[in-house]
Nucleic acid binder design. Structure first.
Lengths: 155, 155
DNA sequence: AACGATTATATCGCACGCGATTTATTTTGG
DNA sequence: CCAAAATAAATCGCGTGCGATATAATCGTT
């Protein structure tokens, strides 16, 4: 392997693998760290981001939820049903388009918002990520996601 | 900590502000993009990175594999058993420490390496990530992972 | 040597996550 | 106006992913 600065073709090929694996590892690690903070709320990470979307909008269709969370209906349907069973959300067919299912918050779901307010601060403490690194990663991940989604269209 | 722009409590909860969500979304998207390239090999992404580790080392214990891939034995055991069923790897108890299970490559597993060589190039084409963005993300994710793992120790 | 602690895997239960398919509803083109 | 295409959810099957626990082997201490 070349030791100097020069990038060989195998370096370039390896880049994709390395980037993917690091994303995969970092994502799993951060979600793992969420678990203890979310457990008192009775939520998993995916349920938590679903509730976050609803705390912002109060009510969203399954399609809108899927677009925001980047999840398929096959993932979302059972997940939202669990939240419904837990008494946090309601599910009902839209009156204007009966193909659409609208998910809304119950009072218990709204109430959970207050308890959830402490989660980001706890996570910030727990992760103890350097702030400038965090901000830079957010920017770069946004750019990555945008690049991934724009060239999604020619597939 | 204090910025000129004060963050409100609801800003803190906002989906778009969360590093974690971006990692989660980016990781899923990249793994999704791998799928069509790995399907001809009969591998999932997790199976692929497992085989990559073995193509590098020829033989690894379950513990070593878990450390490399950042996976628990509860994930790894069934996964490696599937690779064994597919005829790609062997599993046997270590003779020197019978607690340890050693995973090795079969000839079919070694042969698969050649077919897999084209995958990173296909992914590089497919993702079409800006090189400097990719390199920067790798560096930043490395730093993130290191920070996560060092303060893991006081938990 | 003995036995409690540690270590390496394996097992179990639960929750994603998605492609493929199905069902119900709306939209559209002739 | 109506059948075909498109759309929105739901369902199914399979493969992770992990915490909790179980099991077996080794280590450490006396």
């Amino acid at each position: 392997m070349a030791k100097e600065k020069q990038a060989t073709s195998s370096d370039v090929l390896r880049l994709e693998n390395q980037l993917c694996f690091r994303l995969y590892a970092a994502s799993k690690e951060v979600v793992r760290r969420y678990r203890p903070h979310l457990e008192p709320l009775g939520l998993t990470y995916t349920q938590y981001i679903t509730m976050m979307a609803l705390w912002e909008e109060e009510s969203l269709s399954m399609k809108e939820l899927g677009a925001r969370l980047d999840l398929e209906s096959s993932t979302l349907t059972p997940l939202v049903k669990k939240l419904e069973t837990a008494g946090l959300v309601t599910r009902q067919r839209s009156t204007e388009d009966e193909r659409s299912t609208v998910v809304g918050l119950t009072q218990a779901g709204r109430d959970l918002h207050d308890k959830a307010l402490s989660v980001p601060a706890c996570m910030a403490d727990d992760l103890a990520i350097d702030t400038s690194l965090g901000l830079q990663l957010i920017d770069d991940l946004d750019e990555l996601l945008q690049q991934l989604r724009t060239d999604n269209q020619d597939r």
